[in-house]
Amino acid sequence: MSEEVKLVSGRTGRTVYARVHPNEDLVQAVEKICLREGLEQCFLRAGLGSLTDACVAFSSGRIKVVRGPAVEVIGMTGMVEADEAGNPVAVLHGVLAEPNGAISGGRFLPGQNPVCVTFEIVLEEWLPDAAPAGTVAGARAAPVSDAMGSARA
């Protein structure tokens, strides 16, 4: 087997509920919350609201701008990790309901997803154990980012 399973053990910490106001960027708003509250890693536990336009990247690297207003975010996953310099980097994916009812989705590009009316976000802090989880049956501890791939599209 060429790849090893990567495990990170830890526990959850604080939970944040946020209302993001119009014209704030969705990705950067999550990162601002982390900077403000000192959250180094967290999981997105809920995300719902509307974007004026949405801008998402596909796995091919193609970028699509979905024109609103408004584009409803009807499903969302994501997490935040710190980069090498300690700055929070949010990787957020969403399912979109376009104004014509078409459903699409992708990775939200930072700075290109302005909130239209409101956006509600729930973040759950993740506190990884300091010591590695151990190597069991081919498993090894690693930063979560290794399992998530590149932090940016």
């Binding site: 959850t12 910490g13 604080r14 939970t15 944040v16 509920y17 946020a18 209302r19 993001v20 106001h21 119009p22 014209n23 704030e24 708003a29 601002k32 919350i33 403000r36 509250e37 974007l51 004026t52 336009d53 949405a54 801008c55 701008v65 207003p69 290109q112 997803n113 302005p114 239209c116 759950e124 802090e125």
Partner: peptide, 28 residues
């Protein structure tokens, strides 16, 4: 290239742009 737009809303822009509530771990 075309990019996402900002929109002028009908009312005055609130100063607070992100409003937070937070629970500490033992309360969650």
């Amino acid at each position: 290239p075309a990019a996402s737009r900002l929109l002028r809303q009908p009312g005055p822009v609130a100063r607070d742009r992100i409003t937070l509530g937070m629970d500490v771990c033992e309360d969650v």
